[in-house]
């Protein structure tokens, strides 16, 4: 079960700011999802081989040949804020 402190932790990890109402709603959703997986976990899977991917593909690789680079105009077009060719982002370390 996901309790209130766990919800606060998840909100922090996901960088989400939610109202009390939204938090309660999401907590209900998450607990229903968890309950569903608990049901699946109850199944007897002894002797069933692990299936890492639903599609049975392995060893799909590519050669080390370079492709095209994005132009600086294209890069600039996706930036919210820019400065001297850099993306400007929220400060990540203390002053």
């Amino acid at each position: 079960m996901i309790d209130a402190p766990e919800m606060e932790h998840l909100k922090k990890l996901a960088r989400l700011s939610l109202t009390e109402e939204e938090t309660a709603h999401l907590q209900g959703d998450l607990n229903r999802i968890l309950g569903y997986f608990e049901k699946i976990s109850g199944l007897d899977t002894d002797g069933v081989e692990e299936m890492p991917r639903p599609v049975a593909l392995v060893n799909v690789t590519r050669s080390d040949e370079p492709g095209d680079l994005l132009s600086s105009g294209d890069v600039a077009s996706v930036a919210v804020e820019r400065q001297d060719g850099f993306f400007r982002v929220p400060r990540t370390v203390d002053q």
Binding site: Q83, V89, R91
Partner: peptide, 15 residues
């Protein structure tokens, strides 16, 4: 790579 200019309230990102 992030760089942190002195006295700025932001960081700069080079990808």
């Amino acid at each position: 790579k992030l760089i942190h200019p002195t006295y700025a309230d932001y960081s700069l990102l080079d990808l």
